[in-house]
Amino acid sequence: MSMFNRRGIFLQKLGPSAVNPNEVLVSMQFALKEETWDAKNFATTTALLDTTTLIASSSDGGQSFKIRNFNKDVDGDGDIDAEDMMKLLALAKAYLSISTP
């Protein structure tokens, strides 16, 4: 996020685990950034608002993903549907394909 754009997505790759070497998790945190001026300390403070974290899990090394507890309208069309899920799954798979973020 920058000072020009308050929206952000933080992505993190987790896995594989000792139990399943093909397991991959991608954590996706959606947030809004708010900066305020702290007059007492003469400093800018930053807070993350409206954060939502979703975990995309794969047991086949990232070939396919599943997301549980899905309840986020990510495309802004007013409903939570298969299109939102497809975009999140594509984001997880695209992030996994980046070798040096």
Rank of each mutant, 00 (worst) to 15 (best):
M1H: 08
M1Q: 06
S2N: 10
M3G: 13
F4Q: 12
F4V: 00
N5K: 12
R6W: 06
R7Y: 13
G8P: 01
F10S: 08
L11A: 08
L11K: 09
L11Q: 05
Q12C: 08
K13T: 09
P16R: 02
P16L: 02
S17I: 00
A18F: 09
A18K: 12
N20R: 07
N22A: 15
E23C: 02
L25Q: 15
L25P: 00
V26G: 11
V26F: 08
S27A: 14
M28G: 06
F30W: 02
F30T: 02
A31G: 10
A31N: 06
A31K: 01
L32I: 10
L32N: 13
L32M: 07
L32K: 07
L32H: 10
K33D: 07
K33T: 14
K33C: 04
E34N: 13
E34L: 11
E34V: 06
E35R: 09
E35H: 01
T36W: 07
W37T: 00
W37R: 04
D38I: 00
A39C: 01
A39G: 05
A39R: 11
K40G: 01
K40L: 09
K40F: 08
F42N: 12
T45K: 14
T45C: 12
T45V: 12
L48S: 06
L48F: 15
L49P: 06
L49Q: 12
D50H: 10
D50R: 07
T51G: 05
T52E: 15
T53V: 12
L54R: 08
A56D: 04
S58W: 02
D60P: 00
D60C: 03
D60H: 04
Q63D: 10
Q63N: 11
S64A: 10
F65V: 00
F65L: 08
I67N: 11
F70I: 00
N71I: 00
K72L: 15
D73Q: 04
D73V: 01
D75K: 03
G76F: 03
D77K: 04
D77P: 08
D77M: 04
D77C: 05
D79I: 06
D81G: 10
D81Y: 03
D81A: 03
D81W: 03
A82L: 06
M86F: 10
M86P: 02
K87I: 03
K87A: 11
L88S: 05
L88G: 03
L91Q: 04
A92N: 03
A92L: 04
A92Q: 04
A94S: 14
A94M: 09
A94E: 14
Y95R: 03
Y95W: 11
Y95F: 15
L96V: 01
L96N: 11
S97Q: 15
S97E: 15
S97W: 01
S97D: 12
I98R: 15
I98A: 14
S99W: 07
S99T: 06
P101E: 10
P101L: 03
